[in-house]
């Protein structure tokens, strides 16, 4: 029998006129590292707070580990770990004091569950007498994750753990998540960084309170509706303008050192486009077909919804 970690059915949440979640349905399997990918205001935090039994939905239903988020919230709270978007530990307690506080709330001890947090906690343990308020961003993150793990949760909710964090620290954080996943814990993680989607088993792309797509990152990319080209020339600003004025343009977006371009026609006559751009005095032209990434797909979904 199927025994999903999350089972969400037509979940609704509004704040006044703003519809934060528009009948979201979703199922997540046990042991999955599942990503909620979307920008600020997409509804990620509302969804996570409802699942973490901190916010009541207006309609629909949701089960976490088979328990209803409204009726059985107390059961869920003992089985889940939660790391909110904003650092919420006690700034004037030390690292160790914060950890012991969380352990004692769940009637366990740091010693008993040390093995669970060892990989993460060992990195900050040398500073265990330092106050949490005086830690660097990366260290706060490790402490918050340790606190969320100390009672041996079956499922972890991480609300934008990497937002505002530099790329190196982000890499380190995802390495930690991979290790936790190997222990069999279900992990639900939200992020506005599209490139992090590739590090998840499956992802939901969320925009404007609705899920645009749910699948493995590889399968999401396969749904990209057309051929994608990367184009660059010596002047990116003018290239962007000229491609927008090209009669057969479907979409053109800046993408790192290239522009990503799709054409209205099924296949792009590269020579024709090259000629057009050369007439517009673009030098050092490069046009090549490329495989789309999650961010290309996200934008394609967004354009389709509009």
């Amino acid at each position: 029998m199927k025994n999903p970690a999350l089972s969400i059915n037509r979940l609704l949440k509004s704040y006044g006129k703003l519809r934060a979640l528009k009948e979201i349905s979703l199922e997540v399997n046990r042991g999955e590292l599942f990503g909620l990918i979307g920008p600020d205001g997409a509804g990620k935090t509302s969804l996570i707070r409802i699942l973490a039994t901190l916010l009541l939905p207006d309609g629909g239903s949701a089960e976490v580990l088979g328990h209803d988020v409204i009726r059985e919230y107390k059961v869920i709270r003992n089985k889940m770990g939660y790391m909110p978007g904003r650092f919420s530990l006690y700034q004037d307690l030390t690292i160790l004091e914060n950890l012991e506080l969380f352990a004692s709330i769940y009637e366990t001890t740091v010693e008993k569950n040390y093995h669970l947090i060892k990989d993460i906690y060992a990195q900050i343990e040398p500073f265990k007498d330092r106050k949490a308020g005086q830690l660097s961003g990366g260290m706060k993150q490790k402490l918050a994750l340790s606190c969320a793990m100390i009672h041996e949760p079956e499922i972890l909710f991480l609300d934008e753990p990497t937002t505002g964090v530099d790329p190196v620290s982000r890499n380190e954080f995802w390495e930690m998540l991979k290790k936790l996943r190997e222990k069999g814990i279900t992990i639900i993680v939200s992020t506005p960084y599209m490139d992090e989607a590739n590090l998840c088993d499956r992802v939901a792309l969320i925009q404007d309170g609705a899920i645009m797509s749910v699948d493995t990152p590889e399968a999401v990319v396969e749904t990209f509706p057309t051929f994608l080209y990367a184009i660059k020339s010596s002047d990116k600003y003018l290239l962007l303008q000229d491609l927008r004025d090209y009669p057969n343009v479907n979409s053109v977006f800046a993408f790192g050192e290239y522009l990503h371009y799709t054409d209205k026609r099924k296949e792009l006559p590269e020579d024709e486009l090259r000629q057009y751009l050369e007439e517009h005095k673009h030098r050092e032209l490069e046009i090549k077909r490329i495989e789309p990434g999650i961010e290309d797909c996200f934008m394609a979904f967004m354009e389709k919804e509009n």
Partner: peptide
């Protein structure tokens, strides 16, 4: 920080 990928690019249009 935090905006959707299309808006992020529109923002860079303004910067350019």
């Amino acid at each position: 920080g935090g905006v959707d990928p299309i808006t992020r690019r529109q923002f860079w249009d303004l910067i350019y």
